[in-house]
Design a protein around this nucleic acid. Sequence first.
DNA 1: ACGCCATTGCAACTTTGTTGCAAAATATTT
DNA 2: AAATATTTTGCAACAAAGTTGCAATGGCGT
Lengths: 141, 141
Amino acid sequence: MHTQLSIIDTLKKHNLSVTDARKNILSLFSQSGNALAHADIEQTSSAEFDRVTIYRTLQTFVEKGIIHTIPSSDNSVRYALCKDECAAGNHHHNHIHFICDNCGITYCIDQITVPKIQLPQGFKASQTDLIVSGTCNKCEQ
Amino acid sequence: MHTQLSIIDTLKKHNLSVTDARKNILSLFSQSGNALAHADIEQTSSAEFDRVTIYRTLQTFVEKGIIHTIPSSDNSVRYALCKDECAAGNHHHNHIHFICDNCGITYCIDQITVPKIQLPQGFKASQTDLIVSGTCNKCEQ
DNA sequence: ACGCCATTGCAACTTTGTTGCAAAATATTT
DNA sequence: AAATATTTTGCAACAAAGTTGCAATGGCGT
Ligand SMILES: [Zn+2]
Ligand SMILES: [Zn+2]
Ligand SMILES: [Zn+2]
Ligand SMILES: [Zn+2]
């Protein structure tokens, strides 16, 4: 149990220089709480950065273990903050993800862990993603 | 236990007119055995169709329940033949998928089923995808 | 405050995906 | 088998998404 690191501390902890773009984009993730796609960030007026900067920032954050990717079937990869201690180039999450078909919100469901999969002979797992889609608790009526 | 439907029979069974593009692309899936991305089909010299035709054919096949999508984190959705009886607009698979980080081959692992997930209150699942990545049995040394 | 190095924005480009429409191919009817 | 109706295809034109090189800017250590 440790206190939430500030935006700036998080960047410094991962050996990144503190720039407007990084502070802004990282705080977007903090504030939103949910996963964001590139397009979400680009369309957020509060963060007006060049598209290229957003691409590079997201890539850097993934490499440094600040955010993780969430696979999708719609050619729109989403990103969410890593909550545990993910090292650079070495993510280890075991929570599942939920994508709402209705509102599009993508959730990290930390309470539910991905089960261990016994693969056929010769297959070695390095990462397992479990993505559930359906209707979220805000959209059910 | 029933015999494998021919390419043409499969198309007719799903109320699709039998065209060169559909026969060709469907047989690509049969022959390959594994999942294919749009780019794989476009680059296969045996199937020389307009990009637009490939997009539309894949979309039609998904809608008719002939192929299913496999989410990915690299903005490259893959498609694979449905083996069970998937109805139009109503896929029900429960096998997992494996994506090899080395050779890129994407496998449907039919022997392993996706576990039932107990979601938090208010969340309703319509589909669950489990994707394992790592090294496949052809790439291990 | 200075200088070095990393980061950003811009421009130009490639790749990927979409839409409308006429021509061609397929299916259906006679 | 031919004529007609319907569907599918390819093309063109476009929109959106992602990449690369480079000069200008801004952050960081001294
Ligand atoms: Zn929702
Ligand atoms: Zn997550
Ligand atoms: Zn492999
Ligand atoms: Zn599959």
